[in-house]
């Protein structure tokens, strides 16, 4: 489910192309950030292996330049629960609808930087399943329509302000 454990094709082509060149680490990290909107830790582990560079070196570069972001940067962090209860009560359908609506897979930020999408395992309020949270606020008893409606509320809030 975690989308960071392997490099997506686009990035792995890039990495393979630049890997042999000296000093290519910064460029590769740029490409990673362009792709995800930030540099995920798991991807750094993959890069360390691929490039045979210690993780410490990668983070020295990442923390040296203020340009790099190590966290999902978006304004609203959507976390969809895929714990057993939510899963059985239709979370996968909701998730698909949200992905389609935002046009991103999990682990990414929308182009406008408004939303990020993550998957979590169980909030401990299974009575409300299926649930998701946005910046920590819990929304329960969701279906597709309700989920998308909530996203629209946030968009509305944004245009109003």
């Amino acid at each position: 489910m975690n989308s960071y454990e392997t490099l997506p094709d686009q990035l792995s082509t890039y990495v393979n192309k630049w890997k042999p060149k000296k000093g290519s680490l910064v460029m590769i990290l740029h490409a990673v950030q362009d792709y995800y909107g930030f540099v995920p830790k798991e991807i750094c582990f993959v890069l360390a292996k691929e490039l045979k560079v210690p993780l410490a070196r990668i983070y020295e570069v990442l923390t040296f330049y203020h340009y790099f972001r190590l966290e999902l940067p978006a304004k609203y962090r959507i976390a969809v629960c895929m714990g057993t209860a939510c899963y059985l009560k239709g979370a996968p359908d909701n998730l698909d609808a949200i992905k389609e609506n935002l046009n991103i897979p999990e682990g990414r930020a929308t182009e406008d930087g408004l939303f990020t999408l993550e998957i979590v395992r169980c909030y401990g309020c299974c009575g409300l399943a299926p649930v998701m949270s946005i910046n920590g606020k819990i929304y329960g008893k969701l279906d597709k329509k309700k989920s998308l409606g909530i996203l629209d509320e946030y968009r509305q809030k944004e245009t109003d302000s």
Binding site: K41, C44, P54, L55, A56, I58, Y59, E60, T63, F64
Partner: peptide, 19 residues
């Protein structure tokens, strides 16, 4: 071993393990 590294720069520089 590369357990230790510099994190950050300038006045914010500090010694820490990666990530």
């Amino acid at each position: 071993v590369w357990a230790l590294s510099f994190a950050g720069r300038g006045l914010d520089t500090r010694i820490a393990p990666a990530a």
